[in-house]
Amino acid sequence: MTANAKGMFVDTTLCTGCKACQVACKQWNELPMEDEAAVREHRAFLATSYDNTGHLSSTNWRHVKFIEQFSEDRTDARWLMMSDSCKHCEQAGCLEVCPTGALYRTQFGSVDIHQDVCIGCRYCVGACPFGVIDYNGRTGRVNKCILCQDRMETGDGTACAKSCPTSSLTYGRVEDLKAMAAARVRQLHAQGKTDAYVYGWDLGNSGVITQGPNKGQVVKDMEVVGGLNVFYLLMDQPSVYGLPSAPQLPQRNMTPSAGVALISAAVLGVTGLAAFRRRRMEPAMRGASPPQAPQAVS
């Protein structure tokens, strides 16, 4: 981990879904509304829930998820809210596959994008296990949360955390944030909220889900992709929040895939050589043309 890495702790139990963080992000980073295609496809404003953005995109670097859980008779309900963004992974799949160096690790441990180096190949889009990065059709480049790099350089912290009215988002040194998260989980457990655990780092907590469809299931802290510099306190299984339960780096496939390709190429080479040695003549042609002896290349 980068020494003195900065990041954010997202305590989902404190989120009220006010979306002030989304607004602050849009405002500080001067992000426009979704593109026209998104508007046509009704992705710009869903109107199916209080979640009005649906997912992260090239112009929505932060997205407050509304997870609405109702019992079948609708007498029992719970809203889980989570302010989502780039996790600035310690082992970032996007950064690992970037073929131009456009994605890079900053001095704060976050993952930023050199916009003038990005070629818009979208390989990082497919490599991110969280579906964070998005291609911007207008600029032909990719975008995601850059953890307010400009604000971090001046010591201001992130715009979203600054605007959060409930301290659901806290910006700071990752080591300090981990200590804060551990204390918060202990506090919630002491209050009987044993659902609480940390997604991103293994701080040694475990508990049992007390509400919703997954009631009774065991949950425990999980360190994913080497740790997340933006990590979460969750109250249900990761999949409930749209997070992968075991995110992986795309590089896991590189050596095996190249190996299979190499073996296949070798078999093809042998097959190709054999093809010119043992020719399968068409039945009507068999015997029509006596096989010639191999000739020297002229």
């Binding site: 078999v267 093809a275 043992r278 020719r279 068409e282």
Partner: peptide, 17 residues
């Protein structure tokens, strides 16, 4: 025709693979 014979053998092996 000779080349066609080689192509047939090649196609057979490659399609099997």
């Amino acid at each position: 025709r000779e080349t066609a014979g080689a192509v047939r053998t090649g196609l057979m092996g490659i399609t099997l693979l």
